[in-house]
Design a protein around this nucleic acid. Structure first.
Length: 1157
RNA sequence: GGUCGUGUAGCUCAGUUGGUUAGAGCGCGUCGCUGAUAACGACGAGGUCCCAAGUUCGAAUCUUGGCACGACCA
């Protein structure tokens, strides 16, 4: 029955259908050759070409910045971005994938500054904007090669050579077009914004930068009296930790809903108003007794005027009033207002407001301003210059750095009697991350804004139509962010960015926006183009795109259309680089100056995916720009510019940290190499600084791109945070990739031995069912054996689920299904079919069925996993189709995605087979429990089913169970007598709603009742009753569930559907049979020890004093000889090299000599 | 401080509209197989489903309040 390896060796010399495959597979090596194959045949392009004219599936690439090395997080993004376009392409869509690069912005400038060893803005100016920009432009491509390499190595199919680049002229002009549109529609305006300002460096810091520089510091904490003219001898007690902002005070804020107390301070003979909850605390600080005279709600204080502690502005404007929109007049400043951000957590419950130096303060000013008729409200007071020093508006402190002035200001408050209490306050305060000792200040700067708030409702409506994965992003993080939308602060006082395309008239200050370079230079009186021309002349390598950048674009001026003597100059700002990337839906085509057709066909995107950190980044910038630009167009429906968005989780690194010295290790170590401390596992944020992750290339080289991809796709839904651990990646290989590979190599091994030749198919193509049907010896599925039908049924069931899940962007569930199918394929189909592959007759129909079934399954699985693991599937496909000499589809990636043929899904068979597998598993479990190893044959098992429906079918599979369980007989019974107790439990789902509160009592009634009686009644009459509290509850068959309980004293195992009971009685004959198997095992071990070839035939001598063993071997000589390839078996005195072994109490000596052929 | 998310086995994670025996893989242990063989397979141990209260006949699942962690924002 078994085939000799020598035949296999011989078959190698014949023409074989498949290249033999190495069981010691190296996936990385295979992948390299597949990459080569794809490149040679331009397979990606072919996959597109064959879909031209089909419905499009539009993918937008969120542009990465290539000025840093790619890290594992980028692998995940790129893997997901590859998966769905590949899948959709196979499903028949036309899916072009244009790459893109984000190139502008502060991070690029910072990199260049680092390289130049400078950091302040002045230093950039000193170095020269022109060479600086040129450096930025080239620095952007610093790691380009690594990015392209990663992209290709990961198998991310994307058009790199036609990538869009945000600094390209066409891109910039497209962005200009959108800005001009906004400008012309009045959506672009200039306003103030309070930003974190590095005064010494003269630049703003982004929130990310600010976040890096927090330090714990002690600041003065001052409690200041703000006298209330309307209340005699009474002050509002106000608290601040920035005394330097007091000269700029404009309001005091209270919370309308907090209770405020008027307290009397006998030592000062003065009344103070502050939050009632804080009276004790402040009294304690002052070490005084404060008497509460009355309390009131904050709302009663709102509107009162006060005298600020400094009168630099108050003396001229203190009594200024303005007309309210609601009618009436009110003081424009130095008035108590309400603000709900005021709390009693610290301070006094009354907050000093200096709108110039606090973002919330500023918002308060803006909302105050809105209450007044235009032009009559409060104006911003800012007596500090951008260098952080007081101006002459505050003569007492003029020229002092504000933080230094804190002391003098506090002293002055003391002198004037305004200071009530001086304390210290410890808190976190931001410092410049580049100049450690420079505290940042909040400071107002002029900035250009996009009026996104006008479109809030439209953006929300647009958002509602987007399919977010995970769903909670829609109304959670992203929705909330939209709800609290503020106008987009667009401009940056920097150098390397898209210039804001607004030109101002030198005479009138009137402005216009332009949207192309050609339009600019064609303007009447346009001059300054020579600056670029000269730069280009002296360095012909300069890329043409730089001419639309600073400083060249700034050099160009033209005659003002607004005033005959005026000149138009560009405003100095560049724009936020997020605006660049958010414009890609149209700017990637240079729309509308060019690419109108492309835009029309590829807007909006069906699919995008980025990580969670893009919520306020690219996801928002795209949605905002798109909604503002196209939201009013009746022809463009929501959602746009993207329909489905997978929001990826953040990637964590697995590391090991020493508990003692905090030293970090990438690999697991037993003890800290630095201090010998205990090292424990820790997952934390990936960080370049900690170097707590392995470079992607190392993973590719050791485990391969498919391993990494499959790990990403199959181990968790993509939106959970993913731990990037080499260990985990490695461990996920055997479960799927290797298991599939083993099945495949098993197939190749035997197909070659038997000369199975699939090239008999007349038109192979994609090896679909119709093509296969023409093969030699191919029989329709229905005519094949049960195992084959079962496998094909499972296969189609799998395809059905996988396509359903993938259509819902659920790659995780799809992979789970594929994994379980490959498990069934390997551990049931192949395992149970092995002897068919070993069958003697090469033309045996049953054998050919096995080949065709496995071949079809492998080919189909190949196609099904192609989007997930493109390399492995290609490698298998190439070999499966090798013999067809080009008549089959060139690449698996040019195939259509396999769809389920539902007529081949046999649910009954599927159910039965899983029952059979369960019984086998129970049998093994019972053996384990009874400590009866599988090698020991048993006389039989008894299977007790709790539902006899499938018994007849099972009985036809006795042989299978006999082999699996090594028993001589299998019997089924429904009356298990002593083995089993029937337990009848209520069907809670059905009975629960019906009996309601009676349920617990029903439950105990069931427990008390005799299961057998109920079952009998049910099987005879179809119903039964059970008594609860004197009430009768009618039961139908659906109302109960039967459970079997294996009784004590039997070697039995119970499952959900059956109990399997072993016959444990061992006859001498059974024991001898088991002993023989033990001998086989020992001999095989010894063969291995002797390094014998698997094909070597031997002469075996066994010497033993045990009569029983002698008898066993004599009875089973043929079996023994067959198993160990022995030409002869002797029971003599062992000679030559012998080993002594024992089986239980039997000892034996074994000697082996290789038999000559 | 706010918002969002997460908390289930040693680890990484599933868990469908609430239904009473909570799953998978890895790891670990025991064993098997030795013609897929530097593989492979079976079985097993391991859980206060973060805590508490509530709703319900019934809660890992729903509600509320805590706690812890993470992210974003302030």
């Amino acid at each position: 029955m078994k085939k000799l390896l020598s035949e296999y060796m011989a078959s190698k010399n014949q023409k074989s259908s498949f290249d033999p495959c190495d069981t010691n597979v190296s996936f990385p090596k295979i992948e390299e050759s597949i990459l080569e194959f794809w490149k040679r045949n331009d397979v990606y392009q072919q996959s597109l070409d064959q879909r031209v004219g089909r419905e499009r599936y539009v993918f937008y690439e969120g542009p990465p910045t290539a000025n840093g090395k790619p890290h594992p997080g980028h692998c995940l993004t790129r893997a997901i971005k590859d998966l769905f376009p590949r899948y959709k392409t196979m499903r028949g869509y036309f899916c072009e994938r244009k790459a893109g690069w984000d190139t502008h912005g502060l991070p690029v400038e910072v990199e260049v500054c680092k390289e130049l060893g400078i950091h302040a803005k002045e230093e950039i100016e000193e170095y020269g904007v022109e060479p600086f920009i040129q450096k930025c432009q080239s620095s952007v491509w610093q790691y380009m090669q690594q990015w392209e390499q990663l992209t290709e190595r990961l198998g991310f199919w994307v058009k790199l050579d036609s990538a869009y680049v945000t600094y390209h002229q066409s891109y910039v002009e497209s962005v200009w077009w959108s800005l001009k549109t906004f400008f012309d529609r009045g959506l672009l305006y200039k306003g103030h914004k309070i930003i974190w300002w590095w005064a010494q460096g003269g630049t703003a810091l982004s929130s990310g930068e600010v976040g890096q520089g927090y330090k714990t510091v002690k600041d003065p904490s001052v409690y200041v009296k703000f006298p209330l003219p309307d209340k005699e001898n009474t002050s509002l007690l106000v608290w601040t930790t920035t005394p330097w902002t007091l000269p700029s005070n404009q309001f005091a804020a209270v919370n309308e809903n907090i209770q405020y107390a008027t307290v009397y301070d006998p030592e000062e003979d003065h009344y103070l108003i502050f939050a009632a909850d804080l009276v004790e605390k402040i009294a304690a600080k002052m070490k005084r007794t404060l008497e509460v005279k009355s309390t009131c709600k904050g709302s009663e204080l709102v509107g009162l005027n006060y005298q600020p502690p400094f009168d630099y502005f108050y003396k001229t404007n203190g009594n200024k009033t303005g007309t309210l929109k609601s009618g009436g007049r009110e003081n424009v400043a130095w008035r108590i207002t309400s603000a709900n951000f005021v709390t009693t957590d610290s301070g006094t419950g009354a907050v000093h407001e200096a709108p110039a130096f606090g973002e919330v303060d500023y918002e308060l000013l803006v909302s105050e301003k809105e209450r007044f008729v235009d032009g009559q409200g409060p104006e911003l007071i800012c007596p500090v210059s951008p260098n952080g020093k007081f101006t002459n508006a505050v003569p007492d402190f003029e020229g002092q750095w504000v933080k230094d002035a804190d002391k003098a200001i506090t002293q002055k408050l003391k002198d004037s009697g305004a200071l009530y209490l001086l304390d210290q306050y410890e808190h976190e305060y931001p410092f410049c991350w580049r100049a450690d000792d420079d505290p940042l200040i909040q400071y107002p700067r002029e900035s250009w804004f996009v009026k996104t708030t006008d479109f809030k409702d439209k953006m929300l409506a647009n958002n509602q139509e987007i399919n977010w994965l995970p769903e909670h992003i829609k109304n959670g993080r992203f929705g909330n962010f939209l709800e609290s939308n503020v106008d987009w602060s667009l401009s940056r006082e920097r150098y390397w960015g898209t210039p804001l395309p607004i030109w101002v008239c030198s005479k009138t200050g009137k402005m216009e926006a332009l949207d192309s370079y050609d339009e600019l230079i064609a303007k009447p009186g346009a001059t300054g183009m020579e600056v670029w021309a000269e730069a280009k002349k002296s360095n012909p390598d300069l890329v043409e795109d730089l001419k639309v950048h600073k400083p060249y674009i700034d050099a160009i001026t033209y005659d003002s259309p607004f005033d005959d003597n005026g000149t138009m100059n560009r405003v100095p700002e560049v724009i936020d680089c997020w605006y660049d990337s958010g414009s890609m839906p149209f700017a990637q085509w240079g729309y509308p100056h060019q690419g109108q057709q492309e835009f029309k066909e590829q807007f909006p995107a069906n699919f995008i995916s980025e990580a969670l950190d893009q919520t306020r980044g690219w996801f928002y910038s795209q949605l905002a720009i798109s909604t503002l630009l196209f939201g009013d167009d009746p022809d463009i429906k929501f959602p746009h510019p993207f329909e489905n968005c997978i929001v990826l989780g953040l990637m964590m690194a697995e590391g090991y940290v020493c508990a003692k010295c905090k030293h970090r290790f990438a690999d697991q170590v037993k003890k800290c190499t630095q201090c010998g401390g205990k090292v424990s596992r820790k997952t934390e944020k990936m960080s370049k600084r900690l170097r707590n992750y392995r470079a992607p290339n190392e993973i590719f080289d050791q485990h391969g791109a498919d391993a990494l991809r499959w790990y990403f796709f199959a181990n968790q839904p993509p939106w959970t945070s993913i731990i990037y651990s080499e260990r985990a990646i490695k461990e996920s290989i055997p479960e799927f990739l290797l298991r599939l590979w083993n099945v495949y190599s098993f197939f190749v091994l035997y197909a070659n031995i038997d000369g199975f030749d699939p090239s008999s198919i007349s038109v192979p193509g994609q090896l679909d069912a119709a093509a296969l049907a023409t093969g030699n010896g191919y029989r329709p599925i229905q005519q094949r054996g049960e195992l084959d039908r079962w496998l094909i049924s499972e296969l189609n069931q799998t395809l059905k689920v996988v396509t359903e899940r993938m259509d819902n962007y659920d790659n995780y569930a799809a992979c789970t299904k594929l994994t379980s199918f490959v498990d069934s394929l390997s551990n049931w189909y192949v395992r149970r079919s092995r002897d068919r592959f070993w069958a003697e007759d090469k033309q045996d129909a049953n054998k050919l069925d096995a080949y065709w079934t496995l071949f079809e399954t492998l080919a189909t699985v190949c196609k099904a996993i192609a989007p997930f693991t493109p390399f492995l599937s290609e490698a298998v496909w190439q070999n499966l189709t090798k013999s067809m000499g080009g008549a089959s589809t060139l690449s698996v990636h040019l195939c259509d995605y396999p769809m389920a043929n539902e007529t081949l899904i046999d649910e009954t068979l599927s159910r039965r087979m899983s029952l059979l597998r369960e019984i086998a598993s129970l049998g093994l479990s019972a053996r384990m429990n009874a400590k009866l190893k599988v090698r020991q044959p048993l006389s039989g098992v008894t299977v007790v089913l709790n539902n006899p429906t499938d018994q007849a079918w099972l009985e036809t599979h006795d042989d299978l169970l006999k082999t699996e369980l090594n028993v001589r007989a299998v019997t089924y019974t429904t009356d298990a007598g002593d083995y089993v107790t029937y337990q009848v439990v209520p069907n809670f789902k059905l009975l629960g709603p019906r009996v309601g509160k009676l349920m617990p009592k029903v439950k105990s009634a069931f427990a008390a009742a005799d299961g057998k009686t109920i079952l009998q009644s049910l099987s005879q009459t179809g119903k039964a009753t059970i008594e609860v509290d004197g009430q009768k509850v009618e039961l139908s068959e659906q109302d109960v569930e039967v459970r079997l309980q294996a009784n004590e004293g039997w070697a039995a195992a119970q499952g959900v559907q059956a109990v399997v009971v072993l016959s444990t009685e061992l006859t001498p004959e059974l024991i001898r049979s088991g002993l023989t198997r033990d001998v086989v095992r020992l001999v095989q071990d010894y063969r291995k020890e002797l390094d014998l070839q698997r094909t070597d035939r031997i002469k075996l001598t066994v010497e033993t004093q045990s009569d029983e063993l002698n008898q066993a071997i004599q009875e089973n000589t043929d079996f023994l000889a067959g198993e160990v390839l022995a030409k002869e078996v002797n029971l003599n005195v062992a000679q030559g090299d012998t080993v002594e072994r024992a089986i239980g109490e039997h000892t034996l000596k074994i000697s082996i000599t290789v038999a000559q052929e």
